[in-house]
Design a protein around this nucleic acid. Structure first.
Lengths: 287, 287
DNA sequence: AATTTCTTGTAGTGATTGTTACAAGACGGG
DNA sequence: CCCGTCTTGTAACAATCACTACAAGAAATT
């Protein structure tokens, strides 16, 4: 075997011509930097839930003589990596890829989520989850130009979990109608990151004056709506891009969805069941 | 053997009560961070120039059952060290809240993004970015029940950056019309994670038969559309929730947006300028 | 110098491994 | 719908493995 090429890359390269079982195996290998490939073939087979011949076939596809040959290559590779100081470990990727967008992006995103988490008050999180789980309250979601997608994502899940969830249209002309429904038992969830949109603030003010309470997702600098909101989540959004990253916001949304789901699980089970039925009944584009 | 203790330390500690041959062996092991201990006993014996029983005796002295038991410990230790520290989200020091949903969620998300990155082929990424930046191509985006939000997010940005971007409705009844537009110069971006929707597959097949090429975002298990797609992105989606996490998918989307933006920057600058003007001209809900 | 103790390797074993051949099953094309 | 191709696991095999018993040699003690 020639080697010099990292097995990880080899594996990714051939990914297209791999079969289902082989991909399952490759996933296990990729998962912990090929370390799983140092066990005996039998154990690896069990771990990846494939048969041992599948392992041999994959090894051959990658150009190795057999499993032991592949193991040798893996061991060599790992030995090579272990020699490096710990600090350099993370850049084991080939040098030319160290400053690939994806790498730089990953670093920024990681830092964003970390810092967002640092700033997050768990009490606020729990209170918000309780608020959103309260089925006697009506929920309205609203996003700005970019964050509308986030609002949509949140809506998508909440709507399945519980009743009384509404996504506000982004054409402000229909907002007045929606406002009619917002009273003391309403919660308005707003997403507002820079450039903060005046229209969102307007709506927030009107909603508050009608007794609704507001949950706000914004960025580190803080939207003007902050002072109207009872619960505020500040997320870090900066990445090496012309656009802001809403990944940290999505993180908060997903975590909230998980928590709300578990709080509503009893009542939402039948709701989801009913939904499944309706979906099944309405397939129109099928064969 | 439990041994939460590092083998390296164990070895150093016992150094005094080791015999000459055993020390020779331990030197070889220490030399490359125990990696040599992953070979078969015979080969390690050759490499260290001792006999195989010596190896077993050392393993026993360290408290292991036998050589395979020692190997297991070494492998575990190495696996631990190989974990990529890159996007490692420290689930902060707050001990009392270590198993709060948010913390557990953070851990899962971190692992998801890392593993997604491990699996990501940079060449595929670059090719896709080029494809999406090619303004002579028409872009269509399509998502499933949940992933529709992701498609929407992607659409939201791409549409601002360049012309010819279309988001397919999620009611399949209007797809036939959209299909009319899909030819050889069309790219169809599909999001399909479990439960894979047959309708998406149908559409993919039809689009391919008309000459369109497909970029697919799916999960680790792989959608049936994979074989139709020219570019596939597999993301990890599992989190401690009843729902899957599309955060890793969003990561890919945002990174692609950044790259496409920078490739289109020249032409998109004026486009964004024009957009700003239009937004300014159409404020109807203002004070 | 003789005896004991300790160290180490050799040779042989049973167990486990990696491998192959084959057959059942899934899948796609006509 | 059937046929051929591709995929995958089962079962049997040979090779290799980890391990034991034993004995030769070295070192230490008397």
């Amino acid at each position: 075997m020639d080697a010099t090429r990292l097995i990880r890359d080899l594996l990714r390269e051939k990914q297209a011509e791999l079969t289902a079982a082989e991909r399952k195996l490759s996933a296990v290998l990729l998962d912990d930097s090929m370390v799983a490939g140092l066990q005996s073939i039998t154990r690896l087979a069990e771990r990846a839930e494939v048969s041992s011949p599948t392992i041999i076939r994959l090894a051959r596809k990658l150009g190795f003589d057999g499993y032991p040959d592949l193991q040798d290559a893996i061991r060599e590779e790992i030995a090579e990596r272990m020699k490096r100081p710990l600090a350099k470990l993370e850049t084991t990727a080939r040098d030319d890829q160290r400053d690939h967008i994806v790498s730089r992006f990953a670093e920024a995103v990681s830092s964003n989520i970390n810092r967002t988490l640092d700033r997050l008050d768990f009490a606020t999180f729990d209170e918000t989850a309780a608020l959103l789980s309260d089925q006697s309250r009506r929920l309205h979601l609203l996003g700005g130009r970019i964050t509308r997608s986030n609002a949509h994502y949140f809506f998508n899940h909440l709507q399945i979990i519980r009743p009384g969830v509404h996504l506000l249209d982004n054409s402000s002309s229909v907002w007045p109608q929606a406002l009619l429904d917002m009273g003391e038992s309403s919660t308005l969830v707003i997403f507002d990151i820079r450039r903060y949109e005046r229209e969102l603030e307007k709506l927030a003010n009107l909603a508050v004056s009608q007794g609704a309470n507001i949950v706000l997702f914004t960025d580190a600098w803080g939207s003007p709506i902050e002072r109207r909101a009872t619960h505020v989540f500040r997320a870090m959004v900066e990445v090496p891009s012309s656009w802001d990253s809403t990944l940290a916001i999505n993180f908060l949304i997903e975590a909230l969805v998980a928590e709300v789901q578990s709080r509503c699980s009893a009542s939402s089970a039948e709701r989801i069941g009913a939904l499944e039925d309706m979906i099944g009944a309405s397939r129109i584009f099928r064969s």
